[in-house]
Design a protein around this nucleic acid. Structure first.
Lengths: 353, 353
DNA sequence: AGACCTTGCGCAATCGTTGTTGCAATAGCT
DNA sequence: AGCTATTGCAACAACGATTGCGCAAGGTCT
């Protein structure tokens, strides 16, 4: 009795059960009650199916029912704490709705974004979460053509709801925390430029960074007046680049600035890479904050304020938009948290932690 | 001219182009050359399709062709550096093969694993990578019934190829690094138990932990003779639990042990959480290592040796197994790296870094 | 002119499942 | 007995794409 290499179909089962294919379908899809299949028949079919190792062909079902049971999410990268938390939440929410999550990263590449969305549309996903899109408008057009419900997350889009971090508020909190911990050096002191706070990392062209930069400038201006252009160094997300930029800044200033707002975890990785090359006293007079959170980064040998974005909150709200049938381009902002340093550092400012 | 709400099909296109559905199909699927469709016709069809916002229905194609174009991967969680790196590699390899990656986490829950694999089989994925399965045998049975090619990663399975970290080698390296940095206190000194290394975290029941524990014991035995049972505290992966266990251990020993092998990043998070409650001198005499890597954890205020597993290497080898058609239950081991501390810590042992 | 090949395309079956319709057989009622 | 409901199931037509096969028109060769 050679086992068939191919997966059995409802026809195989129907032959074995002496029932029609439609009876088998109803028995296995759970619709047997409303299709008036007797419990005995249904049970028998189910047993045979189990014996035969039957798996519903969801492609066929999807084709027939015109819904695939898939939900999609695209995001910049997987290997990032913030985004991978989103993946985790996304899955949980998808499961709650009986959908299969498909999460694809697009490496911040607009062409890859388009290709991926096209693929997902072709697989007939039922909704799409677009996280951190670099080119929302192109995606918008595709989703619209396909009649695909979608929500933007983390970076806003036009033409559909967006759920984003309240970057302005987060950056204000972080900037204030940094200013509060900055040495209140007299304005006229030597190295005046060092007394001002700097922002490092991120891409001024992206919405989130722009918001944070504005907030940073606004809060800093309350205390120092308008900051020079040079105090915002949006050098991207690469650790190595951030490291180099910081080194160059230190060269120019003759030391670290009194305040440093690092605009992403990856940039912060580069910052730390530079800081560890300095003697400890070099950064004792610097207040450091990072927009984004990492549990270990919160434990460095100097105090770091961090902003923890609410990944689950963002995803939950995004699903709520989908469930609620919201189509308008509303923008929901979700507040992040400010996480105080947990470091054991006992330097000059530790009493402020 | 009301745009159709539904997605157009090849039939819609065929009507508009004045061609048959099969011509449209061939023109759009790229098979027009071998089906002897003239270039002019193909081009015309393609233009109309683009105008109409046509998307191939991959469910229908998959049904007809009996292959879906999907590759699956299941893994314990997304929000973990090691696994999310795997996701990133998995995607890259899937893309190289023109396949759409579907990555689902199963939260180390055997039932969830089974449900997920069933779902993926039902979507007719073409191959499956099973990362860190808690119940490989159940999954093996399902894959076998469905005739699904699959490879185990990180934790080995029976009945199909496995690509795993060389945990034994990694743990040996890490243990040696810890021993080398342990204060070579005389055996007879006060608090003798503190002079021995401890292993904390992980689950002795899982294959990887078991391998590491064995290696740890073996290497430690070379120097100290067989270690007592109590020196291995496999208390799971939860940070809070690790924190509590470490606190309890310190209570028993009257301080930190001379060497500490932490068996996972999450456990290490808990360890750090406890260490920061101690005065710096408390851990100055302790050599710490962690199996798994985090760039920030490598920058703590005390030196930590870390083992960085080769996520991309594992995935690459797993795909090689699939490509090579390997069906036998071979076990491939991929060596991890030992990463030396980059911390700026200048305590008693810093010269060893 | 007839045989034969090439080019360009359409027809119809098919993939596995589902919802609709129809049809016996039994039950219930007067 | 005659008539209507109900039950339990089978037949069939989609869903959208692919593909083996065949056919007609035109070209080439003898």
């Amino acid at each position: 009795m050679p086992k068939p290499r191919q997966k059995p179909t409802i026809y195989d089962i129907s032959r074995l059960a002496g029932a029609s294919a439609s009876t088998v379908s109803a028995s296995l899809s759970g619709a047997w009650r409303e299709r008036r299949i007797s419990e005995a028949t249904a049970r028998k079919v189910q047993e045979i199916a189990a014996e035969q190792g039957y798996f519903t062909n969801l492609q066929a079902r999807g084709l027939r029912r015109a819904r695939s049971g898939l939900v999609g999410m695209i995001m910049p990268v997987h290997d990032n704490r913030f985004f991978s938390s989103m993946s985790q939440s996304f899955e949980a929410h998808a499961r709650m709705r009986g959908l299969c999550p498909v999460i694809v990263s697009t490496l911040r590449d607009p062409a890859e974004e388009r290709r991926t969305v096209e693929t997902l549309i072709s697989y007939a996903i039922e909704s799409l979460l677009i996280v951190g899109a670099t080119d929302p408008d192109a995606l918008e057009q595709m989703c619209r053509a396909a009649g695909l419900r979608h929500v933007y997350v983390d970076l806003p889009g036009r033409g559909a709801p967006s759920v984003i971090s309240d970057n302005r508020h987060g950056a204000e909190m972080l900037t204030r925390a940094i200013l509060d911990r900055m040495p209140a050096g007299g304005d006229g002191e030597a190295g005046g430029a060092r007394a001002l706070p700097y922002l490092l990392g991120g891409d001024a062209g992206d919405y989130a960074s722009a918001q944070r930069i504005n907030a940073f400038r606004a809060v800093a201006a309350e205390r120092f007046g308008p900051l020079p252009e040079a105090n915002v160094i949006a050098c991207g997300y690469a650790p190595a680049r951030a490291s180099r930029e910081l080194a160059a800044l230190c060269d120019r200033l003759g030391g670290l600035p009194a305040g440093l707002f690092v605009n992403s975890l990856t940039a912060f990785e580069g910052v730390v890479g530079h800081l560890v090359t300095l003697p400890p006293e070099a950064f004792a007079g610097t207040a450091i904050g990072c927009y984004d959170y990492d549990p270990f980064a919160a434990f460095l040998q100097f105090p770091v304020h961090m902003v923890r974005q609410n990944a689950d909150g963002l995803i939950a709200r995004a699903f709520a938009m989908l469930d609620g049938g919201e189509e308008a381009a509303v923008v929901i902002e979700v507040a992040p948290d400010l996480v105080a340093p947990r470091t054991i550092y006992k330097g000059p400012f530790s009493e402020l932690g």
